[in-house]
Structure formats: C-alpha cells, structure tokens
Design a protein around this nucleic acid. Sequence first.
DNA 1: ATGAAAGCGCTAACAC
DNA 2: GTGTTAGCGCTTTCAT
Lengths: 332, 332
Amino acid sequence: MRSTITDVAQAAGVHISTVSRAFSSPHLVNEETRNRVLGAAEELGYRPNRAARALITGKTQTIGLIVADIANPFFAPMIKAAESQARMRDYHILVAETDEDPAVEEDLVRAFAKQVDGVQLCSPRMSNELIEKVAHDVPIVLVNRMVSDLPCVLMDVAGGARSAIEHLAILGHTAIALLGGPRSSWTSREIRKSAGAAARAAGVDLTVFSPNTPTADVGLALAGKVAQSGATAVVAHNDLMAVGLMEGLDSLGVSVPSDVSVVGFDDIEMAQWVRPKLTTVANPTGGAGRTAVDMLLQLGADPTATAQVTLRTELIVRDSTGPGPAGPKGSG
Amino acid sequence: MRSTITDVAQAAGVHISTVSRAFSSPHLVNEETRNRVLGAAEELGYRPNRAARALITGKTQTIGLIVADIANPFFAPMIKAAESQARMRDYHILVAETDEDPAVEEDLVRAFAKQVDGVQLCSPRMSNELIEKVAHDVPIVLVNRMVSDLPCVLMDVAGGARSAIEHLAILGHTAIALLGGPRSSWTSREIRKSAGAAARAAGVDLTVFSPNTPTADVGLALAGKVAQSGATAVVAHNDLMAVGLMEGLDSLGVSVPSDVSVVGFDDIEMAQWVRPKLTTVANPTGGAGRTAVDMLLQLGADPTATAQVTLRTELIVRDSTGPGPAGPKGSG
DNA sequence: ATGAAAGCGCTAACAC
DNA sequence: GTGTTAGCGCTTTCAT
C-alpha cells in the first residue's frame, strides 16, 4: 500500500475532491491546479485505489473471463486477445477455468458478479435456463453458445463444416467420418447438424462418432474405429483430435492423405507443424475474444445493447487432404 | 449488483456486524444466530463484496500474474496451474501480458500494486534494479529469474542444458550448435553458460547462434545457418524453435535425426505430436505456477518468508536425437 | 454474544 | 473552480 488521495491533496495543497476530479473529470478543474495535482501524484507514485472507486461508482474496470481450460490452444489465443483489448480500454481481466464442470461454472459467475463489470463466458456447459438465470446477476457475453436473446459471439462453424464436407466431396470422397465433440458443446451440435446436411446435399455417406472428449489422445484412440469404418476422409471436432487421429492412423499403417484425408477445426498453431500439415477450418478465436470484450464494455454503457455476432470461419487447405479413392470429381 | 450485508442483516433480524462475523469469524457468533444469518444469506444469494472488504482489510484475495505472452504454450500451463492453485485457496487471478516490453511490465506491476495481494512476475525483462524497486510496492515472486534475495521460483535449466549436451556427446556428436533465446532472458543466459561448460567438459565444439526471438518461424529461418555450420546436433532455446528448425532442415533435405539431431526445451504438448517426436528438456511450468502462488500466499502471512526454489528439469529422449557421425561413443 | 460507531479511499451531489 | 459533506459495503474496536 502506498500513498492515498489524501497525501496527494496535502502535497498539492488542495482538497481531496479536487484530486479526485483531476483524475476522473479533468475538465472540471483549472489547468494550473490540475498540473499541480498531477505533479504531486506523480511524485508520490499515487494511483487511485480501484476498490475504493468501485465501491462508489459500481464500476470495477474489470472483466471476468471464464473458460473450460486456460492452457487449451483454442482458448489461450482468445484470452490473449481479450486481455489485450481490455488493457487498451484500461480494463483488467480476471481469469478462471471450470474444467468443463457446470457447477464450477455457475459458482464462478456468481463469485465474479460483484467484482467485475461483466463476464465473458466461453463455451459454457451450463443449461440454457441456468445461463439465463445467472445473466441477471451480471452482464454476460456468451462465446460459442447461443441462448435466446443473450448477447453472444459465435463463429460460423456450421459454414466451416459445410466447407469441409464439400471440400472432401469434391476430392471424390464418398464415405466420410465425423469425430464429434462433447455432448454439451453447442459448437459440436452445430458441426454435426451442418455436416449432416452438407453430406446429404453432396450425396456422400457420413458416419458420426460421438460424443468425445476433444483431445489428441482420444483422437489417437479413435484411429482404429475410423480405419474399420471404411471412411476415406475424416472431419474432427478440433485440431487436437485430428492430430491424434493422424498419429493413430500412421501407426496402423494408414497413410494420410493417400489412404485417408483428415480435416480439423480451429487452426491452432500446431496444425502447421505436424506432418502432413493439417487441413483445417480456422476459427477466429482472437477476434472472438476482442469482440466479446467490446460487447461487454458496450453493455456497460447501454445495458439494452444486446447483439448476436457471428464471425467468419475459413477452410485452410494444407496437406492432410487429398483425392478420394475414385479421384477428384470430374477427373474420371 | 445484488443484496448487501444490510439486506441480510434485516432478513435475519440482526445487526450488520453480526452478519460480518458470521462470515469472517464464525466462532464469535452463536450457532443458532449464525445459521439464521447463513440461511438468510443463502436465500438472498448474498456474497460479501470483496472490494468493500479489501478497502478495510487491505487484502484483495487476488493475485496478479504477469507474463510476456498468455498464449505461449510455455506460459499457458503455468497460468492454468496458478489459477487452479489460487482458486483452491479462494483467491482470484488477474492476468496481463507484456509483449516482452519492460516498460509495460513496470507499468503493470504498478497498476496491480493496490489491487492485488501479490504479483507473480514470470520471466521478467526489467532490469534487476527496477525489479527491486517495484518489489517495494507489492509482494513479488519471480519466476524464471533470479534477483538478489527476492523470492523466486526457478527451473534447473542449467542442469537440463548439461543433460542435453551430455546426451548428444554420448551419442557421438562432436560439433553442436546452440540456438539461444532473447538477450534479456535469464533462462537463456543460464542455458548458454551451462551448455558451454558441459561442452568443454565433454570435449565437444559448441557454436552459439544468439540472441533470437524464440519462435518456430525463427527456428525455421535458422536452419540454413545451422546446416552450414557443420554441426551434427542442435540444442534450441525452446521447443517452438526446435520444431521450426526441424521443418527448416527437412526442407533443406537434411534429415532429423540421421543427419542432425535436435533437442528442445520445455516439453510443450506439440513436442510429442511432431515428427520426429522431439527430444526435449521438460520444464515443470505447472509446478512453477503452483509454487509461485503458494509462495505469494505465504508471503502474505509472513512478509519476511522469502525463498528461492529451483524445480527439477528432465531430459525426455524421443526420436529427434540419434547417433553422431562416428556412431555412439564406445561403439567404435 | 451482539449492537453501535468509526472509518477504509474514494466519488458525487451540493454549496459557495 | 474548489471545498464540504455524505456515503458506497464492509470490518473492527469498543461497549454492553
């Protein structure tokens, strides 16, 4: 603990309210006085105590960020972008992780409610009802989850799934496997729905393996089933699973992409360093983090300003996808 | 904002001080009264306002975590572990990143000073003098940096570097290259010193390429120099560089490990999914995060309880290292 | 065991 | 333009 507003007031020979104004409403104070105050503050290394300020303004200048797993390469860039955006606006970020546990999630939102100006809730696992309920306690922006008319930031995974299926269909694949994600994941359901529709439209077979914990190890373990299924192409819920799957297929003597093509989701950094380089649907996780923070701050200014934003995804074709058994469409 | 201590007091028919005691010093209040208070609190969804509490106790129940890059696969597990450890102790984590900028670093520590009970400063880039100075404003635990007698959590990278060099020497390599890290990195200096000593002791040549920004792209770009240097083995400052380097070597037609062996540092998740799987010195990043939080909390209880802890590293031999040009020592 | 009262550091009317 | 005052929600003496 260092100097308080009183110390600065004394040093500058003014009342504490003048010091307060010099910081929070500079235009209300004489320029000369202001400079004197700011000088004294500088000298003393004074910084307004945010807790004290929050107590009276009701604004903490802090945003809560709740994710399932901080170290997950999907979430990490989102946290990074959110922090950066928040800091630009003189906001701080309180992070916490839930380990995918809905109860922890709920508890965290409640615990954060009084300490933050808003909560960015990423890929929540709670029920819609519960989300709507906790949204009364504190402004919430959902990421990767759509709930009635709560503000949310979505990524167009449906479009991504369609692109992936179409890409594979054009390459001549007619039997595709889908490695789904967790049961309670909104994203996972979106991907399944959209991939199913796209497969039907393209006239290709789609076998779904679901639900799964979307880790590389699980992807690896699924290689056998995939190989047996007769599918010549696979779309995985995320890059981690895809990477694991490729490793598993390799150890089964199935080569990617000549025997089986693999498409992931997310475009995590690893995707470009594994071999073959992974074809994947890039998710704008950084953009989502930034957007969510902006929406939260806007919500602070105008609590009715709810919105649902969908960010574009993009299929990035690398080396893990290739022609199907009969060659690309139109080639024969 | 929801119910306050006053609401609970009214509902329970007691004075607010009794409510306060029921939460923070339960033994001071009659069991029956306490149950009534707790019941009312539960009913109203009351949670003590931490800002108000902090204002009077001076304890925020929050720890500040400052890293260069939140999404870096080296730091992410550290943040994860710290958050988890903190939450167990009913503490929260405020994260911020510096982009390796010492000025941002200093500013963040100062900004956090009044809002947190302590700061975990990871791989700081500030000067020793500055670190010692800001340490007066707020309790600090350093990670990956040793400064006089400030509390710090280190990893035995020196031992790791020695193991790496010895491993390569035993495999028969006599010309080794070292890809150093950033100039201001304590870890980088430690590795260089120790690798140098180990190389001398083993009677092998060590060529140092330094300083470098430790990214995969830089590793990739360095492949040419490494190939020209005549080294048959490389130790990289971290796994990211090592992975990039392997890719670069591959595109130069240099194969790993038959032509050149590669060792990384950190053991990030990617290390086991690239091919060849990366031999690397595992750094206990999670353990460091946990330890740092514990030290910080202990510092809160006893401000004189400074300590310097060094965590063990471990060489993990995978597939990126193999025999040198003359075969392993003792084989010929 | 509980209530009363002071006050943490700050902001926001309200005076002048 | 600046000082005065009240009070945010809570903890902590001090009484009782």
